[in-house]
């Protein structure tokens, strides 16, 4: 964990320096920070505002305006289920319900306690031809149903278990 944490804050410094600590680059900086941390931690936001010499409340305003940014820690694996019109008609809700009960999540709770999974519902992904669509860690899976999505989760869980044991 040590090296990783160290690398992480070093990356914050690098990202800030890469953009010349220019307050106009705030959004780009936040995006890159989020790539590192998977979310925007409060103390890092505080540090960014300080380094860019902008008011922390302003940085908070920007980070909360865009739905791309998240202030909550996210899981290692991110599942996006499309609930746009086409997917909704093709019963995406069943998929969402199945995932929620499988992972112990709800409409308010999006990330599992072991921080292995985060479930997000998104509006149209533009892949209506293969509805319903699930995106698992940036990999698109079309024509999904309850059973298929659960087997995807089981596969990841098995991999994680194997990784932990090795």
């Amino acid at each position: 964990m040590t090296d990783k944490a160290l690398v992480k804050f070093d990356r914050v410094c690098e990202i800030l320096d890469k953009h010349g600590r220019n307050p106009h680059m705030l959004i780009k900086i936040l995006q890159e920070i989020q790539e590192e941390y998977k979310y925007l931690p409060e103390e890092i936001m505080m540090y960014i505002a300080t380094a860019l010499d902008i008011s922390p409340a302003f940085a908070y305003g920007v980070a909360t305006f865009y739905s791309h940014f998240t202030l909550q820690p996210k899981g290692k694996n991110i599942i996006k289920v499309c609930d746009g019109t086409a997917c909704h008609v093709k019963k995406s809700e069943e998929i969402i319900n199945a995932l929620e009960s499988k992972l112990g999540l709800s409409k308010e709770k999006h990330t599992t306690d072991d921080t292995l999974f985060t479930l997000e519902t998104v509006a149209c992904l533009g892949a209506c031809g293969i509805a319903p669509v699930v995106v698992l860690n940036d990999e698109v899976h079309g024509a999904m149903n309850k059973e298929k999505v659960i087997s995807l989760i089981d596969k990841i869980k098995a991999e994680e278990l194997a990784n932990a044991q090795s």
Partner: peptide
């Protein structure tokens, strides 16, 4: 707060129906 006082203790967070005026976090 921002323009006359250059303090910026408050800002608008979130958007749409969820928008609110708030200090940092």
């Amino acid at each position: 707060c921002k323009e006359i006082q250059s303090v910026g203790a408050l800002d608008i967070a979130n958007r749409g129906a969820h928008a609110k005026v708030t200090p940092f976090f």
